[in-house]
Amino acid sequence: MTGFLAQVLNGVQYGLLLFLISSGLTLIFGVMGVINLAHGSLFMIGAYLAYVLTAASVPLWAALLAAVAGGAIFGAILERVLFRHFRTREHLDQVLLTFALILLFEEARAFLIDNQYHSVPVPAALDFSVPVVGDFAYSAYRLAVLAACLGVAALMVLFVERTRVGAAIRAAAENPEMVAALGLDSRRIHTLVFAAGTAPAMLAGALAAPLQSVYPGMGDGFLILSFVVVVIGGLGSIGGAFWAALLIGLIDTMGKAYVPGLAGLAVFAMMALVLLWRPTGLFSRA
């Protein structure tokens, strides 16, 4: 029973990390119509950033802040330099551009750091177990990750649903001309969206670093699963991405724990079902 509870919490926590990644993916596509296959690499970069900083005895919380700030700046630069010019290009061009970015990010990492596996220690202040129910205790760091992800998720929803800029973002997703009507500069909105989509992906990598090994291909699995999340959640929908990410996190974690070998397939079977039933996504309004 306690094992099951731990798996549920692990699944939720995994799902929330997935949400941090897929929310950016869905936001960027919804507003800009750009496909970013390099989104998984951002996760990897965030994790390596956490590794490098903590190895230089920077506390993890500072590394997390650095990942958010660095992600936002990096995203803004990427948008200004590259993605801005690819908004109206064909999907084929976007796919190949971002594939090139994956290769270049890999090389940059190999050049600046290395190709090795690393581990990032759990911060000492959180390196204990919290009793949850009865004799079931759960890692304090994992609980902190859970809380942090929920906090970010709440912030993102508030940002998109409640602020003026968020309204512009939603307008931009539906009707670009409305942005101009609201008196906002759509180019600024795009830079902002890219920054806001990149930061959580890098944060997710930094948060996950102490939970798993830090290694070159760590973003690949997350990229594919976050695509599944976006398909199930419905494109451009933050709320849909949230519930779909939780669903996929739970299915994947439970599958790995109880039916190893088939776990990888369970998620895709889920996606196949959604496509059969509602090709526009489980949580879309259409």
Partner: peptide
């Protein structure tokens, strides 16, 4: 479109 890309990638 984009959905087709993602589903083919996932499958």
């Amino acid at each position: 479109g984009f959905f087709f890309l993602m589903t083919t990638l996932a499958f």
